[in-house]
Simulated scan of single mutants.
Amino acid sequence: MNLEDLVRLRRARDRMDREYAEPLDVTALARGAHMSPGHFSRSFRAAFGETPYSYLMTRRVERAKALLRRGDLSVTEVCFAVGCTSLGSFSTRFTELVGESPSAYRARDHGDTAALPACISKIHSRPVKNGDPRTPPLP
């Protein structure tokens, strides 16, 4: 993969970080990266270790966790606020990444992590699929 492609892929990833609540799809992201959807998906996975969809959903779940911890929005409102259009798909993906349903996560006491700096909390609370050990658990 050449440097030019990596720059375009990084811009697409940055766009997903910024516009996670927008209706992004592989076709739109690939168009922005000046690649075909197939080439974009394969290149993104080779560069970042996950598919564009998986990366975007992880970002959305990460933002959803923050909104659910606040407790002032319903699970449905959070689902739509982070850009998901299906409550069922959102709940399934959230449960897959976090290990509990959005409702259970929202109902749980989050006071133990309130004292942690945001930069540390974000690292340790990043959702990972199937208990992937890339991130150590909070003490």
Rank of each mutant, 00 (worst) to 15 (best):
A33W: 12
M35F: 11
M35S: 06
S36V: 10
P37M: 08
P37D: 07
P37I: 10
G38P: 13
H39M: 09
F40N: 07
S41Y: 13
S43P: 00
S43K: 06
F44P: 07
R45M: 07
F48P: 14
F48V: 15
F48S: 12
E50G: 11
T51K: 11
P52C: 08
P52N: 09
Y53W: 10
S54F: 10
S54P: 02
Y55H: 11
L56R: 13
M57E: 08
T58Y: 00
R60S: 01
R60N: 00
V61S: 01
V61H: 01
E62M: 13
R63V: 13
A64D: 03
K65W: 05
L68V: 12
R69A: 13
R70I: 14
R70L: 15
G71T: 12
L73D: 10
S74G: 14
V75I: 11
T76N: 10
T76M: 09
T76I: 13
E77H: 14
E77D: 15
F80A: 06
F80T: 09
A81I: 09
G83T: 09
C84P: 08
C84V: 11
C84Q: 15
T85L: 08
S86G: 07
S86D: 11
S86P: 07
G88W: 10
S89Q: 13
F90Q: 01
S91L: 08
T92F: 10
R93A: 04
R93V: 10
T95D: 01
E96F: 03
E96W: 05
G99E: 00
E100W: 02
P102D: 01
A104N: 01
R106V: 04
R106I: 04
A107V: 05
H110P: 01
G111M: 08
G111W: 09
D112V: 14
A114G: 04
A114K: 11
A115N: 00
A115M: 00
A115F: 02
P117W: 05
C119E: 14
I120L: 12
I120D: 03
I120W: 06
K122W: 01
I123E: 03
I123A: 06
S125H: 04
S125M: 05
R126M: 06
R126V: 02
R126Q: 06
P127L: 02
P127H: 01
V128G: 00
V128T: 10
K129H: 09
G131C: 03
G131S: 04
D132Y: 10
D132L: 09
